[in-house]
């Protein structure tokens, strides 16, 4: 239970830091690094959940764009070769998981009728 409390507390802290960063990014940062965001406000509310969850990435990209270190060729080099490894992973993990799941499945003994324990108690009395 202590570990569960610690995990839940850490998650709350993580999201709180994200909320603080969302406040600064959506009011100051976004206008500085993206001209398409200038004068557009409603859509910013949609960005809040992502900032809460991936705020370290947001900070890193904000720094890259603020300091003009973004390498434009990288924007046009998609990681397409990863499709092959995804196919391998799906082809290996999915059948293994299904087989393991079916093999550990327990069934009720054929010749044993389930009985409610409360009824047994009543019969004894």
């Amino acid at each position: 239970m202590d570990q569960a409390q610690a995990i839940f507390f850490a998650f709350q802290i993580w999201c709180s830091i994200g909320a603080l960063i969302a406040l600064f990014f959506l009011t100051i940062g976004i206008d500085r690094i993206d001209e398409d965001a200038q004068g557009a406000y409603v859509f910013r509310l949609l960005l809040i959940p992502a900032i809460l969850l991936i705020w370290p990435l947001v900070l890193w990209r904000w720094f890259i764009l603020e300091t003009e270190r973004d390498a434009w060729p990288n924007r046009h080099r998609p990681p397409r070769h990863a499709h092959f490894w995804v196919a391998i992973a799906l082809a290996v993990f999915i059948p293994v998981i299904i087989l393991v799941s079916l093999s550990v499945r327990q069934t009720w003994p054929v010749d044993f009728e389930p009985q409610k324990l409360s009824l047994l108690e009543e019969r004894k009395s």
Partner: peptide, 12 residues
């Protein structure tokens, strides 16, 4: 949202 595509770059 499309903002994330531009902000993070399509690659990331």
């Amino acid at each position: 949202h499309d903002f994330w595509l531009k902000f993070l770059t399509p690659r990331i």
